[in-house]
Design a protein around this nucleic acid. Sequence first.
DNA 1: CTGTTAGCGCTTTCAC
DNA 2: GTGAAAGCGCTAACAG
Lengths: 344, 344
Amino acid sequence: MKVHQTTIYDIARELNISKSTVSRALTGHPQVKAETRKAVLELAGKLDYQRNMLSINLISRKSNLIGIVVPEFDTSYFPQVIIGAQAMAQKHGYNIIVSQSNEKFETEVENTKVMLASQVDGILVSITKETRSFEHLKIFQRKGIPIVMFNRVCDEMIVPKVVINDYEAAFGAVEHLILTGKKRIAHLAGPDSLITSRKRMQGYLDALKKHHLPVDESIIIPYDLTLGKVKIYVHHLMELENPPDGLFAINDPAAIEAIQTIKKMGLSIPRDIGIVGFSNDYGSDLIEPSLTTVAQPIQLIGSTALQLLLDLMDKEVSQWKAVTKTLDSSLIIRNSSFIPDNAS
Amino acid sequence: MKVHQTTIYDIARELNISKSTVSRALTGHPQVKAETRKAVLELAGKLDYQRNMLSINLISRKSNLIGIVVPEFDTSYFPQVIIGAQAMAQKHGYNIIVSQSNEKFETEVENTKVMLASQVDGILVSITKETRSFEHLKIFQRKGIPIVMFNRVCDEMIVPKVVINDYEAAFGAVEHLILTGKKRIAHLAGPDSLITSRKRMQGYLDALKKHHLPVDESIIIPYDLTLGKVKIYVHHLMELENPPDGLFAINDPAAIEAIQTIKKMGLSIPRDIGIVGFSNDYGSDLIEPSLTTVAQPIQLIGSTALQLLLDLMDKEVSQWKAVTKTLDSSLIIRNSSFIPDNAS
DNA sequence: CTGTTAGCGCTTTCAC
DNA sequence: GTGAAAGCGCTAACAG
């Protein structure tokens, strides 16, 4: 229970001056007698006076709050993005409020409502895998509150976006497996609702095509990103009469689970099957064999998205441009796909 | 740039009623004519009306904001705590603003000022390793804004705290090494400024004492938590004329770095040296050999701290009790300290 | 049931 | 230089 907070009026009363003068002294207005200013500042310090941003925000119609809506906190991906965004926001005097939707559309809608009520000056959004309707986001546009999407973007929203080169990265990852001699490469595919999943799928397909390898639907496994399910899929794949000799997984947690499962089955990686993941999560360099994966500049995604948002906030709505910023990723080749000759 | 936001006054004007009536209709006040309410609600929906929490907060002197001040984001520990706290906060209708201090005292002071200005209703704090003065936190107490500390706590602040049983955990970890036959156990010790470091140190010392093992200062290495430095320390330790056969590391990142270094030196874990870490970070189960470590209920620490804060917010300042909640941890025995006989 | 008034803490004209 | 007054968007007595 808060006790009474010192206000400018308290200071004014004590000093027998008006609150306007106190305000001016506190905000560094030039035309205040040095003597008066000194007295005000001194008393303010003594009384632990702290400006109430709520009232200032009310006047300025700005909250200095930026909302971030993310779909989940299960993997290290989104926390990392937030770290990047938070650092940039802190630098520019903004606070960040975060809400995560647990991959539920309803929760996402709720969360955006909260952001709206909290008078955020802008939001960063990454949608859930369920999200098909975007009315809850379009409200922001109508209100002139800038939105920037990242990672989980959608075509329906005409806003700036930050993504990585998913197609090229997937293409490169699969081609790498092919160049190590793999001829039958399976894909643990992400939800079709996500653009990133579709792009990575296309990269996978085109890499096979380029190298004249057949596409076999039976080794393309739809995977809803639920941890723990990969085990079943991998068992299924490896017990086919014609099992794959390569696996491109939609993300690292899936790839790591695949490695663990395959090792338990007594198979050898990468000899029996080469594996490539996506994102370079914590631990992908620690598992044995270490995981070949596509490294995303995760924190940079967050800071870039926030920078884009800051840019929008300065501009008239009519000047907004829906640029899509595509950041580069890079393939990190480790032992799950390729072991150099001179290795121990 | 925001466009005009619909206010209750817009609705009132359009409907030719007073804004009080609009307010009452919107907040579900009972004594409003059903007809009026319907009209208001309809128009509100049509105009994307959204209550401005800023003004409500100003009136209620409550921001519905909870601040979290953490020392770093380098390891997965604090993000995880925040996830736990955020989930609990979201459930109770609070938003969370986070700031991290990069282990710098000055930044921590700045950050707490921001929290104060943002009119947070309470804060969760974990101090930097540099923090020796607590005036910036005591201001909150004087203002009646509740504080709960966690992990990086201090004796100087009489506030509720959430910690884990560091002493017992460290004692158990070291005793475990002793029971696996180790007789000369080194300790990578955390900064002496942190209570957790001191408690773990005490646990280490007492475990040695209980088993009549000598304490050798030369294998107790002060470590400031900077990633990358462990390599040097481990080399130093293992090249002693009388190297240790066990290592208790202050945290998992350090233990993992130790494992990597020791493996590169061609030594065998746990045969030549058994290793135990602390916290069960991401990846500690993935590294080879997998890391024996003390598992902390990290998200629970966050949610518990937030719960404690919520409790304080309901009470008069005079009713506040500075309980310290000690959560249990558990030793997870993996291959870096002990390999069962029937292992492959 | 509804309108009027005051006020949350602050900034910002407009006077003097 | 400083004070008085208005107002940001909303709620909460107090009338009627």
